[in-house]
Design a protein around this nucleic acid. Sequence first.
DNA 1: ACCTGAACACCGTTCAAGT
DNA 2: ACCTGAACACCGTTCAAGT
Lengths: 213, 213
Amino acid sequence: MARPRKQLLSRDIILEAALELVATQRDFTITGIAQHLGVNPSSLYHHMIGGKDEIIEALRERIYREIDLRALGGAESSWQSTIEYWVLAYREAVARYPSAIPLLLGRTVGDAPTLALYEVLTVALTEADVPREQHLTVISMLDALVFGSALDAASPDPLWLCTADGQPALHRAGAADPAPDRIGDGLRLGIRAAISYLEASRALLPSDRPGVS
Amino acid sequence: MARPRKQLLSRDIILEAALELVATQRDFTITGIAQHLGVNPSSLYHHMIGGKDEIIEALRERIYREIDLRALGGAESSWQSTIEYWVLAYREAVARYPSAIPLLLGRTVGDAPTLALYEVLTVALTEADVPREQHLTVISMLDALVFGSALDAASPDPLWLCTADGQPALHRAGAADPAPDRIGDGLRLGIRAAISYLEASRALLPSDRPGVS
DNA sequence: ACCTGAACACCGTTCAAGT
DNA sequence: ACCTGAACACCGTTCAAGT
């Protein structure tokens, strides 16, 4: 009874269960994964020595690996469409696992899929003639857009308990029209704003490249 | 010994300690607050019946109350400067308590300071002639900017473990120049992008108000 | 009224024991 | 090699007991 005839666990099985929890449940615990797999919590440590931290890193890797980068950065696509696709695809992947978002934020990352994701964006910024010392700045702004939108989607509705008397403008805003896809609209608005801004800055640069006005 | 001569706790004392923890420490626990006050954890429940949730709500109220709204929305200030000030002041208040950020996100709010904060922004959007049904969309985008920037500031440095061989563009971006205030730059860039976009959309509107071109 | 201390149901993690 | 079960140090929360 201490050891089953067939192997019950593997790194892959554990991560699959973790992904499912993080996509459906509100909280994400070692105990929860173990229960989901019908196994003792301590058993997980034979496959994930790093514990919860290692699981989170592996989750990020899996989530970002789902983003298809092949459609990006080809010579035929403009930097505008690359940035647009990057934000949309990134945010779609993240929003699929809402309860993973707080786990992913603010951690040092070194896995290949994540680095590849940001490398592709940086190349696009180079093509957009963004000065090199501003790359991190623009990246952090687009990052904010992605996670802000994903968080917005995971937020309760209504987000504000406002009243027509106390906060008339906010109340009217909430009452105004269904707005079929507010979250998506916000994201697209942010993308357009960012690209317009980059295009405007670009027009001010000294044109030391052929074909650039 | 079960009861001291002088009162040890009060709602105010507890919240002050919680604010201090959330500003300095990495984690925020009931036990931590109690230790900080030299008191038994269970004692807190005599003043905060709602437990940790109530403390978080009260923290938000205190943090946002520090934002000075008097400088906003006056008849003499443009909607552009209102939005700019709103984002800057909001983000400054939030960034002061980095470990509170995950606690504040995605919760239904009903306290007066928070509602006042968003009411002021919504009024500015009205003045900017943003159609009412787009108010929530724009708010969510500016929200993303605020929290994205605050999270960025709380993130470890370096955020990516990239190599010159594996991710050349990203590596160059990280190596390029000190960038004195990257976070602030990202925020200001986002603000300018948003305002430019709102100004451009505004120019496309039917001018049914006098003085609007 | 106000605080303590025991108690409970949870966490994540370690480790000796079983097969 | 692989899983269990006891154990430990933590959480948040409740409640009877003390003054």
